[in-house]
Design a protein around this nucleic acid. Structure first.
Lengths: 404, 404
DNA sequence: TTAGTTCGTCTTGCGACTAAACAAAATTAG
DNA sequence: CTAATTTTGTTTAGTCGCAAGACGAACTAA
């Protein structure tokens, strides 16, 4: 539940109304099915006010009445549910090797989930943007065909994304200063819904905070385990943006000044020690040539060997897990989150990485009663795409309801 | 600076009123002297509304009318100024070797600034709490004698402080699980104003964000340079609290696995490499015995020798600066702040530390157009105390105005 | 059938903002 | 010196949205 900072703007009735509409909407989302009386009792709003708000939301097709139920004493309640059907939020995820599209309804139900291969490294940015826009357009058309209205489209990119939607730097895509939002916006014909671009880790952590195992945690960090390592940070219930929009760049934090060289030209980066590519290289010394060609196959092979007790693979996993634990300890000491969620290719490897990381974390955590937990994501590879769609819902939740 | 409550709580008229009162108050603070018409034009509020709000604020003695001025065409404006005089906010700072008390009025003017020595390490927590409460009481009585109403008292402690005011761990004071807020509250006779306790770095960064050289920066990190190193983090305009209230513990982040042993029992901590104690030990190898006895004298001696071109001292400063730069690079990559402010004993040493730190930072920063700046605090040793008082004003600014 | 319970609406009142007219106080023009 | 102009701040009327409480509706229990 991300709340945006409101600046020096004064408040008026519209704000009160929008706030309370959002309060009711969020309550119903979390307590389906429920009655108007339930809402009034739980939120403290007056029954009459709730009736008015609910009528408004039904009018906007955000809520729907179901048949009466609740066989209790007294008048039966008219139960309300989220009416997701007329709306959709779309999220796209760009990766070095694939594109993902996800669409969800207001209730967070996935109504579309596509994945297609994509050659991010060798495609020119212009081509890539065209391919991304094309996928987005297909997804949008699909949900429109179902009779839904699109509330927004958000694209996750593995790199530094400025607030205006310009991708400043995406090493794994070979991009620099690409105005992706503008390109996609134009390819979609300047649509009425907002198109935005954000870092993939930022979107993934939003997905985790809504739909993950620790949904609702106010302090949550997500570590991407794709070609690089990035962090999405939710602190005190809000996604961190930083001064220029580039927080969470943990991949090139130095873990060991005596560590190995990193692809970025520096030495001892977390990515060089605990990155999936580095891990694969250590765990599969015999197939070092193919490493870059297909990370997924390599990770599967590492899993196979680790299960088979292969010492080289197990040692590599332990080593990477320890380095990862050291990186996580930095996050924990600086940010004190409740959970650190591992995503991407870290997920299949989590069984070996997490014990080593937790061991390291125990020795390096400052805070008492070691609270921070490390878990693997259960959302799968589309986490950032789903999070992209979820950011659109966050807008709605924050009171930015669709007009009638 | 939240305006309407965006949480699960619904909004009503009182929230609108409180929000707009705070909007007017903040505007006047930043634009003294100004007229009602100015406020209306700048905020977008209606002239009538502004008049009503201003009348309310004058009634609460938060604003005051001055004589007419502004010799322009048209009716002369009645100029308004902040009326700080009837109120005061008090901040205390606990350190291993001294206590500080600061009181400020609504405009942020210091109306009291005391410093007294204090033997934090050898005093039992009960005695220490008594001494702290006594100093607080004297400060409170002093401002009350001036005819002011105390709006709140906030105490900064170098350690882990839970949200309920319990000091979980303060190694440099030898404290563990001390309910300082309760003790001080009782020593003050359960006063009507709120007493709170927070980490000293958190309070210092609040002071920096209000009164420092980079006041107003939305992304700001403060590093304490006392016996330990702690970080206070303001991100997107808000102080980070973390899941348990223990963020910013950067002192024991590992910078180098092959580094020296730290007092905490671990190896290669930032504090062991770049802490003031470690620095003094390296820079003054001949006087290693006295190190703990008086850090301030030792730091002065380091400054004297560095100015004199002493190679040992200069090497130690360069080494510590580099390590500090590495720690700062971690912060920069994770949080992307606009400024990192060095405080405490880092300030007199900043001339030597910052160049080395910036050099390191340039090589380790990921983001392009290296934006993060490193500066020394200009607030002096009372930063945390002043920040403690400022947190009280933040409450007022957020709409929590004193009752009549 | 009657009493009791709960739900949701209706009516009334109030608080807070907006818009527009107006009164007040100065400067400028003739 | 008077009148027009300009700007300020108040007054009046109106609207919006929430709260409180009465009330009808719909169901259970006895």
């Amino acid at each position: 539940m991300i709340t945006l900072p409101r600046g020096p703007q004064p408040a008026d009735f519209a704000d009160v109304r929008a706030t309370n509409l959002a309060v009711v909407l969020r309550y119903v989302r979390g307590h389906v099915p429920c009655s108007r009386a339930d809402i009034a009792a739980a939120t403290g709003l007056n029954k009459a006010t709730v009736s008015s708000l609910v009528a408004d939301l039904i009018d906007r097709h955000l809520l729907r009445e179901t048949g009466l139920t609740e066989n209790r004493i007294g008048r039966p309640a008219t139960m309300l549910v989220l009416d997701g059907s007329p709306y959709a939020a779309v999220g796209l995820e760009v990766n070095a090797d694939y594109l993902t599209a996800v669409a969800i309804d207001l209730g967070g139900e996935e109504i579309l989930s596509w994945r297609r291969s994509f050659d991010g490294l060798n495609a020119a940015p212009a081509q890539a943007a065209t391919a991304i826009a094309a996928l987005g357009k297909r997804a949008v058309n699909r949900v429109i065909k179902e009779g839904r209205r699109v509330l927004g489209l958000t694209i996750g990119v593995p790199g530094l994304v400025a607030a205006d939607g310009v991708v400043r730097l995406a090493p794994n895509l070979g991009w620099q200063d690409i105005d992706l939002r503008d390109r996609v916006n134009r390819a979609l014909g300047e649509p009425s819904y907002p198109v935005s671009v954000d870092n993939d880790a930022n979107l993934a952590v939003i997905a985790e905070s809504r739909y993950g195992e620790h949904a609702g945690a106010a302090n949550l960090v997500y570590l991407t385990g794709e070609v690089g390592i990035g962090a999405g940070i939710i602190s005190d219930g809000r996604l961190l943006h930083g001064a220029r929009g580039f927080p969470g760049e943990i991949g090139h934090v130095q873990i060991d000044p005596a560590g190995p060289a990193c692809g970025c030209g520096r030495v001892g980066c977390l990515e060089a020690l605990a990155g999936v590519s580095a891990l694969v290289r250590k765990a599969l010394p015999d197939s070092a040539e193919e490493v870059i060609t297909d990370l997924e196959l390599d990770v599967n092979e590492v899993v196979r060997r680790a299960k088979g007790g292969d010492k080289v693979a197990l040692d590599a996993l332990a080593e990477s897990g320890t380095a990862l634990g050291r990186g996580i300890s930095t996050i924990v000491n600086l940010l004190d989150p409740e959970v650190v969620v591992l995503g991407g290719y870290f997920v299949p490897l989590a069984g070996w990485l997490i014990p080593a990381a937790e061991e390291e974390l125990r020795t390096r955590g400052v805070a008492p009663e070691d609270g921070t937990r490390v878990t693997a994501s259960v959302l799968g590879h589309g986490a950032a795409a789903k999070g992209g769609a979820a950011t659109v819902l966050d807008q709605v939740d924050a009171g930015n309801l669709p007009k009638r």
